[in-house]
């Protein structure tokens, strides 16, 4: 099972941000890099991290913040609370 830290690192990498740039409250649109295309990079990178288990989660594309992404991953038992 992956950790919250691994997920956050993956999002930072997808957005080409320095490690530690994101907080739980960072949301789409709040930083320049997290635009509609950045959002697709996040989804793609998470799907790679979780080896194809992200694509079947229909509502993950609607997650608008780090917190919301983590909640959906917890809900789908991909990370621990």
């Amino acid at each position: 099972m992956k950790t919250t830290d691994e997920v956050i690192l993956t999002i930072e990498s997808a957005l080409e941000l320095e490690k530690g740039s994101l907080s739980m409250d960072t949301s789409m649109g709040s930083i320049e890099q997290w635009d509609s295309l950045g959002h697709l990079s996040i989804l793609s990178s998470l799907d790679i991290l979780f080896d194809g288990l992200i694509a079947p989660i229909a509502n993950i594309s609607k997650a608008q913040s780090v917190n919301e992404i983590l909640d959906i991953l917890i809900e789908n038992k991909l990370i621990e609370k």
Binding site: S36, L37, H39, L40, L43, S44, D47, I54, A55, P56, I57, A58, I60, S61, K62
Partner: peptide
Amino acid sequence: MDGGAVFMFTMR
């Protein structure tokens, strides 16, 4: 276009 939703539909 909801890019995220269409992208995930494609992946699925």
